[in-house]
Amino acid sequence: MTRKRRRLMILALALLGLGTATALTLSAFRDNIVFFYSPSDLAAKPPGGRTVRIGGLVEAGSLKREGGMTVTFQVTDTAKSLPVTYTGILPDLFREGQGVVAEGRLGADGVFSATELLAKHDEKYMPPDVADALKRAGHPGKPGDAPVSAGEEHQTSTLRTNP
């Protein structure tokens, strides 16, 4: 074996080892790396009194203004949904059917009281007229895409349930 080949082998082995170690570490800390839990995660692993972040879609038709700056709405991952209450200024992108991440505590009554609210947008970008045309056709899908089923298309990315 030439010296070049030997150096190449050592390098390949070292990178393989490093890659495996990184993969194992990242999968072990999965619960700590995720930025938020979905309502299903929360149902499976109740957080108790801890401060946690939850995320999902703001369920269409669930937003209610309670007077003052308080709002209530349902956060859903389409499998489970969770009632949330929040007092404060809403981010610009906060709207029904869009993604949201809320930080706060789950109360004993099952209502999540949020202290901070962030809007999450998905990977779809299109001009307003294209969005209108898609909506009129009943497909809130992505531009230039053959529409699959409206419901399925809509929950592409914002929702990911963790196993």
Partner: peptide
Amino acid sequence: LHQPASVFRLGGPTIA
């Protein structure tokens, strides 16, 4: 909180 990929993704770009 960051969105998923819009261009280099399976199933093609999701940008008009």
